[in-house]
Structures are given as C-alpha cells and as structure tokens.
C-alpha cells in the first residue's frame, strides 16, 4: 500500500478515486486530500502534506498511539482505557466535524 502511494502521485494518476462526497456535493469532506497527503508524507514533504489534509497529518501521533494500545488491548487493558478516555474520543469526533466544516469556509486550510 505504502509502495503504491509512494510511487504513484494521486495528483497525476487517474487510478486514485476522487472523493465521492466531493463529487456529489462539491464540498470537501474531512478526508479529502488524504491520498495526496499520504503521498507527500512518504516523500517527506511535510508542508505539502499539511496543506492537503492537516487533520490526517496531525492525527498520526494519536492514530499510532491507538494502534499500539489496540495491539496490547488484552495484555495492558489499562493503557487501552487511558487512550480511549471519553474526552479524547468525543473530542476527536468534534474535531473531525469542525475540520470538515471549517475547511470549506477557509480555502487556505
């Protein structure tokens, strides 16, 4: 998967699907730009990645932590609970929605 996203540039290759939400509504969804962001990240172009989808880039540390906790869910249940505190999960939900709305009003986001 990473290899595919490293070699092919979603800006130039037609095989990468366009976001159906964007096609239908003309609005960018919270995930729009994540393929291009992934491509940029793999090429270590962090500024570009942030420009394509800041939410994805900024979420990476938390996603990593969640994956780590999930791998040890049965062995370290306390860790799993700590990274899944309601405040974090609800906070993330609110962040996704705010991000989805805001990026359509502020074109430089």
């Amino acid at each position: 998967m990473c290899l595919v996203f490293y070699i092919l540039d979603p800006n130039e290759c037609r095989l990468f699907p366009r976001c159906p939400f964007l096609s239908l509504t003309g609005w960018e969804c919270p995930g729009c730009g994540s393929q291009r962001a992934l491509h940029s990240l793999l090429h270590l172009h962090f500024a570009d990645a942030l420009r394509y989808n800041a939410l994805l880039v900024l979420s990476i540390p938390y996603i990593g932590l969640l994956l780590w906790a999930e791998a040890f869910r049965t062995r370290r249940p306390g860790l799993y609970l700590r990274v899944h505190k309601p405040i974090y999960v609800w906070g993330y939900l609110v962040a996704v929605i705010l991000w989805g709305v805001a990026r359509n009003f502020f074109p430089n986001l």
Partner: peptide
C-alpha cells in the same frame, strides 16, 4: 482492570480519513 471491548476508534478514524466518511 477489565479488558475493554474494542472501541473501533482507530479503524473508524482510518475509514473516515481514507475512504468512507
């Protein structure tokens, strides 16, 4: 500490960001 059921949070985030909002 009881083993928590999976919250599916990280999977949901990945689905949101990568394909199916």
């Amino acid at each position: 500490v009881k083993i928590a059921p999976r919250t599916w949070l990280v999977e949901s985030i990945l689905i949101t960001v990568l394909c199916c909002l």
